[in-house]
């Protein structure tokens, strides 16, 4: 749920990075955090286990500057990818404005990608949302892996959803900002179309 404060002239948007465990969701956020200027970012909060696996979520607030006189703030969240954290994943999706699905190019994770994509659809349905109605981009991560599944194969494994796609090596920062810009474009365009009164 986007929050528009006409008094403070602020626009707040919630973006959630979703995908299978160890697919690179937290790595995306860490790269954004590392690259963003200090004045434009808040603290990167990670609610993680002792082995740095995401337990509840990672959270990174980004202050992107002004758009038509409005301060645009993006709140980036990741969900825990591990199967048994299903309840936490569902909670983080509450009020989501845009989604980045981080798919793993490792051939051994094809089933995990498909399962996570299906899980996303179920969890959105729990909030009365249809996956094809929420602005979504897909990031095919770990493209540098030897034996990486061709993009076409990954696309088919997700049922060829027909959303914007980005190839990435998040650990090196490749494709991270392209993905974020892609989802930002979708979310802001979508918001313009559905603002009440329009």
């Amino acid at each position: 749920m986007t929050f528009v404060n006409y008094s403070a002239r602020e626009l707040n948007v919630k973006i959630v990075y979703y995908g299978p465990g160890l697919g690179g969701k937290t790595t995306n956020l860490r790269h954004v955090y590392a690259r963003a200027p200090t004045r434009q970012k808040g603290r990167l909060i990670s609610l993680a286990t002792q082995t740095e696996r995401t337990l509840f979520f990672d959270f990174l607030p980004l202050n992107l500057g002004t758009l038509r006189g409005f301060q645009v703030r993006f709140h980036l969240y990741t969900v825990p990818g591990q199967v048994f954290y299903a309840a936490s994943r569902r909670l983080i999706l509450k009020g989501v404005d845009g989604l980045v699905f981080v798919a793993d190019s490792n051939p051994l994770r094809l089933d995990a990608n498909a399962e996570s994509w299906a899980d996303l659809g179920r969890n959105l349905a729990g909030y009365g949302l249809r996956r094809d109605r929420v602005p979504t981009v897909i990031q095919y991560n770990k493209r540098d892996l030897e034996g990486a599944v061709p993009v076409d194969g990954l696309r088919r494994c997700l049922g060829s959803p027909g959303v914007p796609e980005f190839e990435a090596v998040a650990a090196e920062g490749r494709g991270v900002f392209e993905t974020l810009k892609g989802v930002a474009r979708l979310v802001l365009s979508n918001l313009a179309q559905r603002t009440p009164g329009r």
């Binding site: 749920m1 528009v4 559905r194 603002t195």
Partner: peptide, 8 residues
């Protein structure tokens, strides 16, 4: 209401 809009 899909989003919250707060006025002055």
């Amino acid at each position: 209401v899909p989003q919250l809009v707060v006025f002055e």
